[in-house]
Each structure stands twice: as structure tokens, then as C-alpha cells.
Design a binder for these strands. Structure first.
Length: 592
RNA sequence: GGUCGCGUAGCUCAGCUGGAUAGAGCAUCUGCCUUCUAAGCAGACGGUCGAAGGUUCGAAUCCUUCCGCGAUCACCA
């Protein structure tokens, strides 16, 4: 039995003995740093069952625990708080049990617990920007967190490869491109397509201005601009399967995919299954028919099909147009079903999509539930806040974006500058150095984004570079590298020994306590779909380690048992850093 | 206007199912490299937890109202 359960039982027994009443629950919490003790029993809630002075009650229980629980050898009572000092032997024993467990804190995958995590899902008319980076990092790490907490996970994305937006880039390329290709221009292929998306917008705006000068109203001008009409015509041709349009579409999408793949590789994200909207945009219509029969949907006089969600406090929502064509919702219903058809073992899905679609997913999940799918109970919209710039929202078509590739590049550059100034890489080849700069730069970027609660929006100021000190990715990597340095120098086989010194150093005890929190943090992060919880945990652990490192000699310790324990503690901290960072999608270096 | 989210130190953020004097990092200022990597450590400075009520022995945390910011309320995706 673990110590908290044991304490709970013992407290209940102690109370029963002294006061002849049963307390249903016992509140335990870690003792605050400014008080002596490791675990605290909060007495206040017991006052409902026991009449009396909390200090007296605490003292009675404290005495009882000291006498009956071997692990407790001291206590003190402050107001209604009973602080218990736990013996070193307990902590040492506990550490010994997890010491060689390479999968400490990670739950083995359960084949009955299968989720699909969708993330990324970009449009194919422009390169990825900082907002996409947040989506990718969140989706990837939540998928990894779910794996670490015992789920089997499929990562997927649905590529938005059709629609008016891609036609805009295509049309502009056709009109203004003069046959420009990634090869001829030397521009990264997805950026080239993005260039024409911007070009379209520019031409469109110009036409609007001209029409307005001719006396048309703004909204009319926006609807009647010739270039927009042309783009709409192109979309119609695409849907009709026009050969020339389809060929152009394939060519330009191909460019985008090539570019995206480079960015994905740089970011270190991957997918098990890709869906393309050009394949899925007609899905879902048959389900609507089905839903009509079941009475989930109803048909209006004009023939369009709706669902009434007013009982749920929402509006009526259209699921099929009067002309029988699909809307976004139809498609999402169909795609969800398609996924389960493709992967029959999944029993839930996570959608990583920005919070501007909160309403859409609320409705989608309700519909799927009403349609009665068994997997509809485990649907989660991993909603996250936008990444804004000091100047406001990022807009690709206006060119006011922080480009993903540029940002990754500039992070590596900063890492390089700092690393050269530090000058600790003697003996590293140029290739190893480049790899390290990228690793550190990416860590700074990824941690910067992941440490923030997904719900909150992020304000990113390109002028103020991302930090490399303090609560940052590089700081944690640095600690890892330090630990590896110690392990390289340890002149004995760490995995073979176990330390049993008489008294634990305060810092050693604190480290062990921090290590104990790892498994529950992984589970908590999974429950909350929040990489931020894990990021903040690892920061706490690393701070604790650095304090230990600075105050306690490790390799210089004369007492061999103490030295061995300290090396092992360091090793375990290193392993937990590595596991956590792997889950967050961040690599760790041997040196830096 | 309805709905949802957010509001904690100058800045960026933690604070789990209510618990002790609200915590970190950055910035500013002090110390610490002849000893395991100073991208570090130790310390100082900095707060009416948006406001007001309420519930409670106890509220940053729960409830209500209000204020501010954002999103959404498309036969766009």
C-alpha cells in the first residue's frame, strides 16, 4: 500500500480510537516549504465530526501516527495543520523501487482505449505560420501524452486541399506567374504558392477600389470583382473535374505538400493517417438521410435539412442545403464516421482546432451523440487560443504573419550565437554543432508555446526574442546535459549500486519527492489535455535539481554510498527530463 | 444582444478536486566560477489575485451581478 492510503487509514483509525467517530475522508497535502514536515493532514474538515480544538485533535492524531506508522517519526501542529515528517528510510526504499524502471511514470498502452487525435489540418494555399505551429505542437504532444497515459493513439490530419482559397492562389499564379516554379525561382515551394495567394488579394483589393470609384457600394464591389468571379468559376470547373484545372491543382498542391513536409520534419511532428478534403467533402449525405428517418433532423419547406438544438440552448443548424449539397457540418459528420470505418478500434476522437470553432464542435458532438454512435461519448475539442501579434491578428493574405520556417530558422540562429559565446563544444564536429543549435532553438520555441495553458491566447512579440534562460526549454536541456556530464565522469556502474546512507540530505529528499509527482502529472496532463501541466512539472523538478547540484557535491563526495545515491538520483532526474520532453516533442542533448 | 473563454507582480505565466504568510521566469539591484557545465545557484525589490456581493471555520479557486479583452452566433471552411 502506498503511503497516502496508509496514512488515510491510520488517521481514520486514530480518530476512531480517540473520538469514537468515523471520518469519511482525510485531506492530505504536501507540506509547505516554510514548515517542517513532508506530508500535512488538514484537521479543519474533521471539525464537522469531532467537537474540539483543532490543535488538540491534531496533536492526538500526530501522536497516534508516530506510534503506529513506521514511516512517521516526527510531527508538529500549526493551527489546524498536522505536519508529518516522513523517515528517510521510506524515501530511500521508494526510490530504490523505481530506480531501474526505464518506463517510470508511463502507462503501457491499452488496446481497448483507442483515440484518434486530429491536428494540423492546414489549408493548401499558403505556408504554415506561428498559429499552425501552436496547433501542431499541441496536437502532437497531446497525442503523446495520451499514449503515455495508456491510450493507443492514431494521429491524423485532414488536409484542406480544395475550395475557393486554393483557387485564388491557382488563378493568381496562372495570371501573374509566367510559369514560375520552385526550381526557377529558388523559393520554397509552399512559400511560392503563398506568394500568389497574397498576389490574388492585392489584385482583388485593387479591383474593389476601382469598382467603388465607379460608384458601386463596398459590398457589391466585393461580390462583383472580376477576379473573384473568375476564382469562383475555377472552383466550379474543379468540381466538374475540368482536366486543366485539376492538373494545375495537382501541381500546386504538390508544391505545398513538399514544402509542408519540410516544415513538419523540422518541427518533428508526424501522422499515421492523412485525410484529404477533396476526398471527404461529399461525405455525410447518406447519414443525413439516416438521421431524417430517425427523427434527429427535419426538412424545411425549401428542402434543406436542419437539426433543432434549442433544447440544448443552441440554435437550429443546417446540415444539408436545399439543393442537396453538403455544408461543413455534413462533411465533418461523414468524416468522423469514415475514420471509425478505417480504424474500427477507435472509441474516441480529439480535434485540435482553434477556439473560434468552439460552437461548431459543440454542435458536431451533439449531432453525433443524437445519431447514437457508441464512440460519440468520447469526443473532445482541443480548443486553443489564437497566437496574436502586438499589431493584432495574423493574416496570411495581408502578409502580416510570423512564418513558421523563418521562425524556426531564427531560433536556431539565436541558439548558435549563445552557444558560441559559451564555447563549451570543443571536440564537436561542425555537423554535430549544427544539429545542436537546431535542437536548442526548437526547444526554446516549443517550450515557449507548450508551457502556456492551451485555452489562453498567446501574444507573440517578434521584437522580443524568445528567452533561453529561466523557465525555458534550453534551461531544461542544459540541466539534462549537466547530468549527462556527471554520468560520463562517474567511474562506477551506476545501475549496479544502491546508496544507503544514514541521513538523507534535505535536497536529496526534495528531489525524491519531486520525482514521486511524475506519474500523477502525466495522468493529470492527459485528463486535462494539457502539455502545460507537464512542462511546468518538469521545470519544478529541474529547478530542484539545480539547487541540489549547486549545494551538494556529487562526484566529490567521499562517502561512497552517498556518492552513489547522488549519481543515481541525477540519473533518474535525467531520465524523467528525457521522458517528459519526448512527450512534449522536444529533444535533449548530451552536451551544450 | 445571446453563448463560450480569458482577466494573478512592470512584462510572460504557475497556482489540481476551496486550506497556512499568493508562487516562478524575465527585467532591475546584491552576492557566488583554483572544486561535478555560471544557458546555473543564493538573495533583494515588486501584488487591494478586474470590481462588488454571497456560500464557508477558511475563497485567487465555488455562486451571483457588474466591468474589460477575445471568440462565436454564415446555406465559409
Amino acid at each position: 500500500m502506498d503511503l497516502p492510503s496508509k496514512l488515510t487509514e491510520s488517521v481514520q483509525r486514530g480518530v476512531a480510537k480517540h473520538y469514537h467517530v468515523d471520518v469519511p475522508t482525510v485531506e492530505l497535502q504536501p507540506t509547505r516549504k516554510d514548515f517542517e514536515g513532508d506530508i500535512t493532514v488538514v484537521i479543519f474538515p474533521m471539525l464537522r465530526y469531532i467537537k474540539g480544538n483543532p490543535v488538540e485533535i491534531g496533536t492526538k492524531i500526530g501522536e497516534y501516527l508516530q506510534e503506529h506508522v513506521a514511516e512517521i517519526y516526527k510531527y508538529n501542529v500549526v493551527k489546524g495543520f498536522l505536519n508529518l515528517v516522513v523517515s528517510d528510510a521510506y524515501y530511500l526504499h521508494w526510490f530504490d523501487t523505481i530506480r531501474t524502471d526505464e518506463n517510470y511514470g508511463l502507462v503501457p498502452a491499452d488496446s481497448k482505449n483507442v483515440l484518434m487525435v486530429e491536428y494540423s489540418s492546414p489549408n493548401t494555399n499558403k505556408p504554415l505560420h506561428l498559429g499552425h505551429i501552436r496547433n501542431n505542437l499541441l496536437g502532437y504532444s497531446v497525442a503523446e501524452i495520451l499514449k503515455a497515459s495508456g491510450h493507443k493513439v492514431y494521429k491524423s490530419q485532414i488536409v484542406n486541399d480544395r475550395g475557393i482559397h486554393i483557387c485564388k492562389s491557382m488563378l493568381a499564379w496562372q495570371k501573374f506567374g509566367n510559369g514560375e516554379t520552385p526550381e526557377s525561382s529558388g523559393i520554397k515551394s509552399d512559400h511560392l504558392v503563398g506568394k500568389y495567394y497574397v498576389a490574388f488579394d492585392k489584385a482583388y483589393k485593387k479591383e474593389i477600389t476601382q469598382l467603388e470609384a465607379q460608384g458601386k457600394s463596398r459590398s457589391t464591389a466585393e461580390k462583383e470583382a472580376p477576379i473573384l468571379l473568375e476564382a469562383q468559376e475555377m472552383l466550379r470547373k474543379w468540381e466538374a473535374g475540368d482536366e486543366e484545372v485539376v492538373r494545375l491543382w495537382k501541381k500546386m498542391n504538390g508544391w505545398v505538400y513538399t514544402g509542408f513536409n519540410t516544415t513538419y520534419t523540422n518541427l518533428g511532428v508526424d501522422f499515421d493517417k492523412l485525410y484529404y478534403e477533396s476526398d471527404t467533402y461529399l461525405l455525410g449525405k447518406d447519414i443525413v438521410e439516416d438521421g431524417l428517418k430517425k427523427g434527429v433532423f427535419f426538412r424545411k419547406a425549401d428542402g434543406s435539412v436542419w437539426i433543432d438544438l434549442s433544447e440544448e440552448g443552441l440554435d437550429e443548424k443546417i446540415v444539408l442545403r436545399a439543393d442537396g449539397t453538403a455544408v461543413y457540418m455534413t462533411q465533418d459528420i461523414g468524416t468522423a464516421i469514415q475514420r471509425v470505418a478505417d480504424f474500427p478500434d477507435i472509441n474516441g476522437m480529439v480535434y485540435t482546432v482553434g477556439n473560434e470553432q468552439d460552437y461548431h464542435f459543440k454542435v458536431l458532438f451533439l449531432i453525433l451523440k443524437k445519431l447514437g454512435f457508441h464512440w460519440a461519448g468520447q469526443l473532445y475539442h482541443l480548443s486553443y487560443g489564437m497566437v496574436d501579434l502586438p499589431s493584432g491578428k495574423m493574416k496570411s493574405r495581408e502578409g502580416t504573419v510570423v512564418d513558421a520556417d523563418d521562425l524556426i530558422e531564427s531560433m536556431s540562429k539565436t541558439a548558435k550565437e549563445i552557444s558560441i559565446a559559451q564555447g563549451k563544444l570543443d571536440g564537436y564536429s561542425e555537423e554535430e554543432k549544427q544539429k545542436l543549435y537546431k535542437m536548442v532553438g526548437l526547444a526554446a520555441l516549443k517550450y515557449f508555446i507548450l508551457k502556456v495553458d492551451p485555452k489562453k491566447r498567446i501574444l507573440f512579440d517578434p521584437e522580443e526574442s524568445v528567452d533561453f534562460q529561466g523557465n525555458t526549454g534550453p534551461f531544461i536541456q542544459y540541466t539534462y546535459a549537466r547530468i549527462q556530464s556527471i554520468l560520463r565522469k562517474a567511474d562506477f556502474n551506476v545501475s549496479q549500486v544502491k546508496g544507503k546512507p544514514g541521513a538523507l540530505h534535505e535536497k536529496e529528499k526534495e528531489l525524491i519527492k519531486s520525482l514521486q509527482n511524475f506519474p500523477e502529472t502525466v495522468l493529470l496532463a492527459a485528463e486535462n489535455y494539457s502539455p502545460a501541466l507537464l512542462a511546468n512539472y518538469i521545470f519544478e523538478l529541474v529547478k530542484e535539481f539545480n539547487s541540489f547540484y549547486q549545494q551538494v557535491t556529487i562526484l566529490g563526495e567521499a562517502d561512497i554510498e552517498k556518492k552513489q545515491l547522488r549519481v543515481q538520483l541525477s540519473k533518474k532526474v535525467g531520465e524523467v527530463i528525457k521522458s517528459s520532453f519526448k512527450i512534449l516533442g522536444i529533444e535533449v542533448p548530451e552536451r551544450m
